[in-house]
Nucleic acid binder design. Structure first.
Lengths: 129, 129
DNA sequence: GCTTGCATTAGAGCGCGCTCTAAACTGTAA
DNA sequence: TTACAGTTTAGAGCGCGCTCTAATGCAAGC
């Protein structure tokens, strides 16, 4: 029921280093982590899923201060659910926009690659750059 | 035929600040920029399109040292076209992989948003985090 | 002659997200 | 008993990509 994890086990579960786990706690994104008799951190299953969610936010390039803001709202309980949803939707839009930009840039690169392929076949030509 | 640009005009054409333009030159990604009688930079049309290409690379989150490497190959002439193409293809793959990851993370966020919507309608529930 | 505006340089500074260090402590094994 | 492995903390350090500063110069307009 309460199989608690050491920081190393937590590191394995989340892919974050123990340094980073302590750092996330220090900046306030990870509150109420239990301690064992020796003062070592003892992470719960709830801690695991919360940190895994933080990792998703990080994968979306959401800045730490935004993750911290989200954490603070979460700590304030269910009354902040609406605001949390708005935050997630805002980030969703930003990432979608970012992906559109990436697609556009990828197309330009693809064009260049095709151009280079032509140059490799017929080595005399006028380069675009 | 040779309407050269001041650094400010170049800044407008590329979206990079004049500080950044000088920085790109300093790290070696922008060679052979002409100077006018007063020692001011005078950018050619070729410089413009090259920097615009660098901006595309930057939009793809390609590190400066890689852009520098690409610039060096370009300076060595057409014999490096094949290697340049391989670099671009490698970055292409990386960005595609990155976009797949973003898509996956976006889906998780979308799921969470739907969950929150349900919570906002019926305020008594068990939160996942 | 003086101010204004735009440019030059070398080099310092900054915000981000970690990442690492040093010193101290505890429990376990040899 | 002593070494080892794992943890703790505060705080320093780092790589990245700029971004800014200070001192200087030059050309044009008043």
């Amino acid at each position: 029921m309460d199989n608690l994890l050491t920081i190393q086990e937590m590191s394995r579960q989340t892919g974050l280093s123990s340094h980073t786990l302590r750092y996330y706690e220090k900046v306030g994104m990870l509150e109420g982590v239990a301690r064992n008799a020796q003062g070592y951190r003892a992470y719960s299953e709830a801690d695991v899923s919360w940190v895994q969610f933080l990792v998703v936010l990080r994968e979306l390039n959401i800045p730490i201060r935004e993750m911290k803001r989200y954490s603070d709202l979460r700590s304030q309980g269910p009354s902040t659910v609406h605001e949390r949803r708005l935050m997630l939707e805002a980030h969703q839009s930003r990432v979608e926009e970012q992906m559109r930009k990436l697609s556009g840039s990828l197309e330009k690169i693809a064009t260049k690659i095709e151009y280079y392929k032509g140059m490799e076949e017929v080595p005399i030509s006028v380069p675009p750059n």
